[in-house]
Amino acid sequence: MASIFTRIINGEIPCYKIAEDEHNFAFLDINPNSIGHTLCVPKKEVDKITDLDEDAYHSLMHFSRKVALAVEQSMECRRVGFTVIGLEVPHVHVHLIPLNTMADATFQTKVSPGPEIFEATAAKIRAKLQ
Rank of each mutant, 00 (worst) to 15 (best):
I97V: 15
N31D: 04
N33W: 02
E76Q: 10
A68F: 00
F27T: 01
Y57Q: 07
A19D: 09
S64R: 14
G36C: 09
N100S: 10
S64L: 09
L60Q: 03
A56G: 03
A122H: 03
A19H: 09
A103K: 10
H62Y: 14
P113M: 08
A56R: 12
D53G: 06
V84G: 04
V84R: 07
K43E: 01
V41G: 01
A2T: 12
I9T: 04
S64Q: 07
K43W: 02
I18R: 00
D55S: 14
L129Q: 04
T101Y: 11
I125K: 11
A127N: 11
F27G: 03
V67P: 01
V89W: 04
A103F: 01
F82G: 02
E116S: 11
Y16G: 03
I85V: 11
V92W: 04
L129E: 00
D21M: 07
E45C: 13
E76H: 01
F5N: 01
K44S: 09
G86D: 00
I125F: 08
E72F: 00
T6E: 13
A19R: 05
E54V: 04
F25W: 00
I18M: 00
L52V: 05
R79A: 11
N100K: 14
F25C: 05
T83L: 15
V46D: 01
F63Q: 07
I49G: 03
A105L: 11
H37E: 13
K48P: 00
L69A: 12
H91N: 09
A103V: 11
I117D: 00
S64C: 08
H37V: 12
F107I: 10
I85N: 11
G114S: 10
D47G: 00
D47Y: 14
S112E: 15
L60A: 08
M102D: 12
V80E: 06
V84F: 05
L87P: 02
A2M: 14
I49S: 05
H93N: 07
A123E: 06
H62M: 14
E45M: 13
N10F: 06
A26V: 04
D47V: 11
H58K: 14
A70Q: 02
T101D: 14
D55I: 14
D51P: 04
D55C: 09
P98T: 04
E76M: 04
